[in-house]
């Protein structure tokens, strides 16, 4: 773990620096250059509305450092109930870093330091006294690459409930597994092979298995870090449908590289650039009438 962890931290940090150094050369117009300068200023005011009507999570003045490199600057953002928030932006803009703050996954990187006020239902989750185990049971996460455990399909889904003692007997556990697989849309494909290894499924199925695994713990928020980037278009479509269904019950934050995906699945969209949250608003608005030049350049495909 040590090696990969540090390497990851370095990668993330390097990516940030790389972007910082390259950014000026990417300009295609004077206007963009000016916008960059305005972003580079110390105090930056996010465009649009950062607050949500019925917030599950609120983030205020969030800063993240990987060693000496700062990866996130004063980010403010709410995640609303029964809502999908899409986080978009060029590589290394800090959107994955941000999402990892929401369930303290940055703790697993030795050099990472997260500051700011992050609350789940008004409870500070970024303080020392926060119980990370409890937090992560409430805020689930799905990763970029499907990462089923090297266990059977059943055991993969039953892993969380078993840990947390959610089922008092085998029948309850069976029920949780079945419900979770059904909700993840994997039941029909998997019900006859529950005892076979989860790694034997196709990529899209694996990712749905990971989603089933996450919802088996009955979380309040689900974080998704580019869940479809390793999948083919058909599998992607299924996952997007699934996200849509899940948003009826969960608050969801999804990092995505694909603007079409953001437009399809989310109600709100946040645009990150160089570790700063540039703009956040109704998805429609972001894609039709963005308030910031950088957002416009990005969604119209001028860079990124």
């Amino acid at each position: 773990m040590s090696g990969s962890q540090t390497a990851e931290a370095v990668d993330l940090a390097e990516e940030e620096q790389l972007d910082n150094s390259r950014a000026p050369r990417m300009d295609q117009s004077q206007a963009v250059a000016e916008d960059f300068q305005s972003v580079a200023q110390e105090e930056y005011e996010t465009h649009g509305t950062v607050t949500a009507e019925d917030p599950v999570m609120t983030v205020r003045d969030c800063n993240v450092f990987y060693g000496d490199a700062q990866a996130l600057f004063d980010v403010n953002l709410d995640i609303g109930r029964n809502q999908v928030v899409a986080l978009i932006g060029p590589s290394g803009c800090g959107k994955s870093t941000f999402i990892r703050c929401l369930n303290r996954m940055n703790d697993t990187i030795d050099t990472a330091v997260v500051t700011g006020d992050i609350r789940l239902y008004g409870e500070d989750i970024n303080s020392k006294s926060t119980d990370v185990v409890l937090l992560r049971a409430r805020v689930g996460m799905v990763f970029q690459k499907p990462n089923p455990f090297p266990k059977s399909i059943f055991e993969n889904v039953a892993y969380g409930p078993r840990l947390h003692g959610l089922a008092s007997n085998r029948a309850e556990l069976d029920e949780i597994v079945e419900t979770s697989l059904r909700r993840a849309g994997l039941w029909e494909e998997a019900k006859d092979r529950l005892d076979q290894p989860g790694t034997g499924l196709s990529g899209g199925q694996q990712q749905r298995l990971c989603i089933a695994r996450t919802i088996a713990v009955n979380p309040e928020v689900i974080l998704m870090d580019e869940p479809c980037s390793a999948l083919d278009p058909i599998a992607t479509a299924r996952i997007e449908d699934l996200i849509d269904e899940l948003s009826e019950n969960y608050a969801i934050a999804i990092v995505t590289h694909s603007m079409q995906q953001a437009a399809r699945v989310s109600q709100r969209t946040a645009y990150f650039h160089l570790g700063k949250l540039i703009e956040v608003d109704e998805t429609n608005r972001i894609f039709t009438n963005p308030g910031h030049k950088l957002t416009e350049d990005y969604v119209t495909g001028r860079f990124g």
Partner: peptide, 25 residues
């Protein structure tokens, strides 16, 4: 979110909390 869902989540939370002391030990 339905009231059922809400209750389920609260029940989950209760059970997780109940298991914590043992797990940390």
């Amino acid at each position: 979110m339905t009231a059922d869902e809400k209750r389920a989540q609260e029940e989950t939370l209760r059970r997780v909390r109940a298991s914590l002391a043992r797990r940390y030990r």
